[in-house]
Design a binder for these strands. Structure first.
Lengths: 128, 128
DNA sequence: CTTGTTGCAAACTCTTTGCACTTAG
DNA sequence: CTAAGTGCAAAGAGTTTGCAACAAG
């Protein structure tokens, strides 16, 4: 079994990330951490973010895959994404979902739901 | 004002996308379209998917930006994303959101919500 | 005709990885 | 000690873009 060592790098990445509520990207974290460990590499930041996310110490938003997906159906409906392979399906009646037994999404076993709101931040409202 | 021309390429991309409900990625669409227009380029596929999504003829899933974001707060909470700049904020009491006036997400004006379910598709269940 | 669109290839952005060296435990 | 982790640089994956030729309206 592979152990996990609390290196200075991992420690600082975790500390810096916990200081803010801005949901920074990897390169933003890289910049934050570099003020304390100037010679840290971006690769190390990525590796540690992975490890920290796997161990549940931090969250990675948009768990969704790296590729964008398109849908020819523009009717209002929601999606299910397979956490293993990334395959995406449609959910037609979201309100039926709470009871996992009634498969609202055919072909998928739903485990959790994430709600993502979209809007405009005050900063952008001000500068429009 | 720039016009928009219905080229054979754009037509076929739209037709192929409407044939399926698999939410294909750009390169999957590229493969589908190439069976009908062998010399089409991947760049053309990307350009047309952009145009079609902008005109509302198709949907682009995960409107979210291209970079992954991380969160040091592992408590259960949801996110708001600015559709203009990509900035992400926290939503603490999702149930308050329906009334836009009560700003559940400070610093953001919420426009819409997307629910994304996560689960495991039958294909992956079978092969585990 | 005029200007939007295409194919191609090069450029870009973000993320991952191989390797020799370093270091936590 | 020794295996996990690091820095660096190169490689990958996915997407975007400049440009000359092409074609829709």
């Amino acid at each position: 079994m592979s152990q996990t060592r609390m290196t200075k790098q991992r420690m600082v990445i975790l500390e810096e990330l916990r200081k803010v509520d801005t949901h920074p990207t990897a390169d933003e974290i890289y910049a934050m951490v570099r003020s304390r460990i100037p010679r840290i590499s971006l690769g190390t930041v990525y590796r540690n973010l992975d490890l920290l996310a796997e161990s549940g110490e931090i969250l990675r938003l948009e768990a969704a895959g790296t590729q964008k997906r398109f849908d020819g159906n523009t009717m209002h409906h929601q999606h299910v994404r397979c956490i293993r392979c990334g395959r995406v399906g449609d959910v037609m009646h979201p309100l039926d979902v709470p009871q996992p037994e009634r498969a609202a999404a055919k072909g998928f076993t739903i485990l959790t739901a994430r709600v993502e709101f979209e809007g405009i931040c005050d900063h952008c409202t001000a500068h429009s």
